[in-house]
């Protein structure tokens, strides 16, 4: 049995009074494309910095491929980082930036220059060696940062909000490329993001952070379809989180439950709910057209329920009464006291 690429054992990191990371245990498998997802200040970036070695744990241990890493400075870890603002050295050319790690290792000039050229070609920046960082666009800078990290052949590549600074079009293209790169190289990628869409579409597995703790780890389908806590249900995609009393009346035990808006359909007047479904009558408060779907805000039983229905599937008149229905199985029981 091989050891995990990264292992957190009950790791905590405090900044003064604040526990940025609070008792995190986590295994990341070799070759995974792993996402750390969470809001600002949830501890995800600190976890990344703990792997890189910029921070050291106050409690617990970190292993990288079976070797103890806590206490080791960044320059003694075979792990490289793509920084959020890229952190390219402004006094060096693109080529010198990429070859930096190799130069530090003591590799000869000719060899490291050819390796740097290869790495640049890999990120589609062939022939950019002589340019300066200031002459590059944001997307190109990120590719340089990527080449600069990958040329060292790290065991784990860390990416801090890799797509955060790019515009939408470029972001989609980079998502695609990063996935392809990771697959081709077989290197473990760990990236941090606050964008749940990015995490779900790119990662093999996702860890969701809140207030320094991991809420849930799983595949994108897992965390989306079977959120374990109210936080996950709410943060990953949008969900209707129903209180225990209402959920109980709908036959889902007196527990908090999560219900995805797109699981809800509209029933025509008088139409009964199919077998295994539940239904609820409500008054339409507002509707917003979002292209392929229309999001409806419906007031029912004193709560507001959001439903996403195919655009044009129902006449939308604010104030009208609607009958909502969904399969019982669409209600996912959440952890926590009723």
């Amino acid at each position: 049995m091989t050891s995990p690429a990264v292992r957190f054992q009950n790791v905590s990191r405090r900044f003064g009074e604040v526990k940025a990371v609070d008792g995190v245990s986590l295994d990341i498998a070799p070759g995974e494309l792993f996402a750390m997802l969470g809001p600002l200040g949830s501890g995800k970036t600190t976890c990344l910095r703990l792997i890189a070695g910029f921070e050291q744990p106050d409690e617990g241990h970190i292993e990288i491929f079976g070797a103890r890493a806590d206490g080791l400075p960044p320059y003694k870890r075979n792990v490289n980082t793509v920084f959020q603002d890229y952190a390219l050295f402004p006094h060096m050319t693109v080529g010198e930036n990429v070859a930096y790690g190799l130069m530090i290792k003591g590799m000869g000039r000719a060899e490291r220059e050819s390796k740097a050229a290869e790495a640049l070609a890999m990120v589609k920046l062939k022939g950019f060696e002589a340019r300066r960082a200031a002459q590059l666009s944001g997307g190109q800078r990120q590719r340089v940062a990527l080449a600069r990290a990958l040329v060292n052949n790290p065991k784990v590549l860390l990416l801090d909000e890799p797509l955060g600074a790019l515009d939408l079009k470029l972001r989609e293209q980079m998502q695609e490329e990063l996935r392809a790169l990771q697959k081709g190289l077989g290197i473990t990628f760990v990236f941090v993001t606050h964008d749940q869409g990015e995490a779900l579409s790119m990662a093999n597995r996702v860890a969701i952070f809140n207030e320094g703790r991991i809420q849930q780890v799983g595949t994108p389908t897992d965390v989306y379809e079977r959120p374990r806590t109210r936080f996950v249900a709410d943060f990953v995609g949008s969900a209707n989180v129903l209180a225990p009393d209402l959920a109980g009346r709908l036959g889902a035990g007196p527990r908090w439950v999560s219900l995805r808006p797109e699981k809800i359909t509209l029933l025509a007047d008088g139409q009964g709910a199919p077998e295994g479904w539940v239904s609820l009558d409500g008054r339409l408060a507002s509707a917003s057209y979002q292209g392929s779907v229309t999001r409806l805000a419906v007031d029912a039983e004193g709560v507001r329920i959001t439903a996403a229905v195919p655009a044009g599937s129902a006449p939308i008149v604010t104030g009208s009464t609607l009958r909502l229905a969904w399969p019982k199985a669409a209600m996912v029981l959440l952890e926590g006291e009723p």
């Binding site: 890189a52 070695g53 910029f54 400075p73 960044p74 320059y75 792990v79 490289n80 980082t81 920084f83 603002d85 952190a87 390219l88 050295f89 930096y100 790690g101 530090i104 290792k105 600069r148 990290a149 060292n152």
Partner: peptide
């Protein structure tokens, strides 16, 4: 601190 961290990350003490 960023450039310094980047340098250490790339193996420089």
């Amino acid at each position: 601190g960023n450039l310094i961290e980047a340098s250490m990350d790339l193996g420089a003490n």
